[in-house]
């Protein structure tokens, strides 16, 4: 990776972002839109500046939830995929239920999770984990199923045990698919953190960005809510970027090299 090319990659989204903000500002200023309905970008920026301390602490809370929840989701999703792949009873019994679990509005679980796990971060991690494990499971299962059967055959001629065939042949081959699942999970994680925060009872001064958004809206401070939303927006981009770097490390072989066309 050359530094210059990285800058070049950042330029188009940056330009689009600036253009969108500009259009939004003009629309609110010149269109006579009620700022309670839609605050102008400069109002959002002012709110962010004046509430920087609160925003910062709530960001830390939410980032921690997302990072840990995602870790939990990826670990659980990956483990479930391996179990589904290796053991037929699991495939037949657990997989359909996992599909069904995604239809549950997790808000209904909040009281019972709080009863079991208290008012700390744990029940929120469970909600994020339950929402985010699924894409990891699905892509990993597909990745494991898509392994070239000739490769497994080859390993068999080297007297590989079932475990060795899995370890040397199937698992590495499925890693890129698992990482794609993790990327989807990551994108969903922020909205699931919002769901977790706003549905779980919490103690303590800072309850995360999702809570802050709901509070700001209830006290008719749309600029504050928009500032918290903007932080979510940028956090998501930053995490996605971090994951891409990790992907290059873990499964760089599966990615087109610099200079090759995609």
């Amino acid at each position: 990776m050359i530094r210059g090319s990285r800058m070049a990659n950042a330029l188009p989204p940056l330009m689009l972002f600036v253009a969108a903000i500009g259009a939004w500002e003009l629309y609110v200023d010149l269109g006579g839109v009620d700022p309670v309905l839609l605050p102008a970008p400069h109002e959002v920026a002012t709110a962010a500046w004046s509430e920087a301390g609160v925003l910062w602490h709530n960001t830390l809370v939410t980032v921690k939830e997302v990072a840990l929840g995602l870790l939990l989701a990826v670990a659980a999703g990956f483990a479930l995929a391996i179990a589904v792949h290796l053991w037929r009873p699991v495939r037949r019994s657990v997989y359909p239920l996992a599909v069904g679990s995604q239809a549950l509005p997790f808000v209904v679980l909040a009281p019972v999770l709080a009863f079991w796990l208290g008012f700390g971060i744990l029940p929120k991690l469970v909600v994020i984990g339950l929402i985010c494990f699924f894409p990891v499971t699905v892509t990993t299962v597909d990745g494991l199923n898509a392994v070239d059967p000739d490769r497994v055959k080859l390993l068999r001629t080297f007297d590989a045990s079932r475990w060795q065939a899995f370890r040397f042949g199937e698992l590495p081959a499925a890693l890129p698919a698992a990482l794609s699942g993790a990327r989807i999970a990551l994108v969903v994680a922020w909205i699931s953190a919002f769901i977790a925060e706003t549905s779980s009872p919490t103690v303590g001064p800072y309850a995360g960005l999702g809570r802050q958004i709901m509070t700001d809206l209830s006290i008719v401070d749309p600029a504050g809510a928009a500032a918290a939303t903007a932080v979510l927006f940028f956090c998501s981009i930053a995490f996605f970027h971090l994951l891409s770097i990790a992907e290059r490390r873990i499964a760089g072989w599966a990615q087109p090299r610099q200079g090759e066309s995609r």
């Binding site: 490769r151 080297f158 040397f168 042949g169 590495p172 081959a173 890693l175």
Partner: peptide, 19 residues
């Protein structure tokens, strides 16, 4: 049927590792 995530030498030694 070389494994794309392994280097050339690591591909060659696969049967030794399995052993």
């Amino acid at each position: 049927l070389l494994l794309p995530w392994r280097s050339a030498l690591d591909n060659a030694v696969l049967p030794l590792q399995i052993a």
